[in-house]
Simulated scan of single mutants.
Amino acid sequence: MWYAPVVVSLPIADRPASYRFYRDGLGLDAVGEPAEDGVPEPLQFAVNDGLRVMLVPTGGFGWVIGTHEVAPRGQSECVLSLPAATPEEANRLIERARAAGAEVVVEPEQRPWGYTGAFADPDGHLWMVVAEPA
Score class of each variant (00 low, 15 high):
75 Q>H: 07
100 A>E: 07
86 T>Q: 00
60 G>D: 15
106 V>D: 14
49 D>P: 04
96 R>W: 02
74 G>K: 11
63 W>L: 15
51 L>G: 09
86 T>F: 03
85 A>K: 05
93 L>F: 08
48 N>E: 10
107 E>Q: 14
96 R>S: 15
88 E>H: 10
107 E>M: 07
52 R>L: 06
38 G>Y: 00
84 A>R: 01
61 F>L: 09
70 V>R: 01
62 G>T: 03
59 G>Q: 14
39 V>Y: 01
48 N>Y: 07
94 I>D: 06
58 T>L: 12
60 G>P: 10
82 L>G: 11
73 R>H: 02
48 N>C: 10
80 L>F: 04
104 V>D: 13
55 L>M: 12
111 R>T: 08
66 G>A: 14
63 W>M: 15
86 T>H: 10
50 G>T: 13
42 P>M: 01
69 E>K: 08
88 E>S: 07
103 E>N: 13
43 L>C: 09
60 G>S: 04
49 D>L: 11
78 C>Y: 03
61 F>E: 14
43 L>E: 03
104 V>P: 15
91 N>G: 12
58 T>C: 10
42 P>W: 06
66 G>Y: 02
48 N>I: 03
54 M>Y: 04
95 E>N: 01
44 Q>P: 11
47 V>R: 11
46 A>L: 12
112 P>T: 10
78 C>E: 11
109 E>L: 02
48 N>G: 08
54 M>K: 08
78 C>M: 00
60 G>H: 14
46 A>E: 10
40 P>D: 09
56 V>S: 00
112 P>A: 12
106 V>E: 15
40 P>L: 04
45 F>W: 05
45 F>Y: 06
61 F>M: 15
92 R>M: 09
39 V>I: 12
67 T>N: 13
93 L>N: 12
43 L>R: 06
102 A>Q: 04
68 H>M: 14
75 Q>C: 04
101 G>T: 03
42 P>V: 04
91 N>D: 15
54 M>P: 09
68 H>R: 15
47 V>W: 03
50 G>P: 13
99 A>D: 11
87 P>H: 06
88 E>L: 12
97 A>E: 00
45 F>T: 04
53 V>G: 10
45 F>C: 06
90 A>H: 08
90 A>N: 08
68 H>I: 04
87 P>V: 10
73 R>N: 05
82 L>S: 11
41 E>W: 14
80 L>M: 12
90 A>Y: 00
92 R>A: 12
109 E>P: 00
107 E>V: 06
56 V>M: 07
111 R>K: 03
111 R>V: 13
63 W>Y: 00
81 S>H: 00
76 S>D: 10
89 E>Q: 05
41 E>P: 15
101 G>F: 07
71 A>Q: 03
73 R>Y: 09
75 Q>N: 01
74 G>T: 08
64 V>F: 01
98 R>L: 13
60 G>E: 15
42 P>N: 12
51 L>P: 07
107 E>L: 10
75 Q>D: 01
59 G>I: 05
68 H>W: 05
112 P>R: 00
82 L>Q: 11
94 I>G: 03
95 E>G: 00
48 N>S: 07
111 R>P: 08
88 E>W: 08
61 F>S: 03
89 E>P: 01
102 A>N: 01
86 T>N: 06
98 R>Y: 02
68 H>L: 14
78 C>G: 10
107 E>N: 08
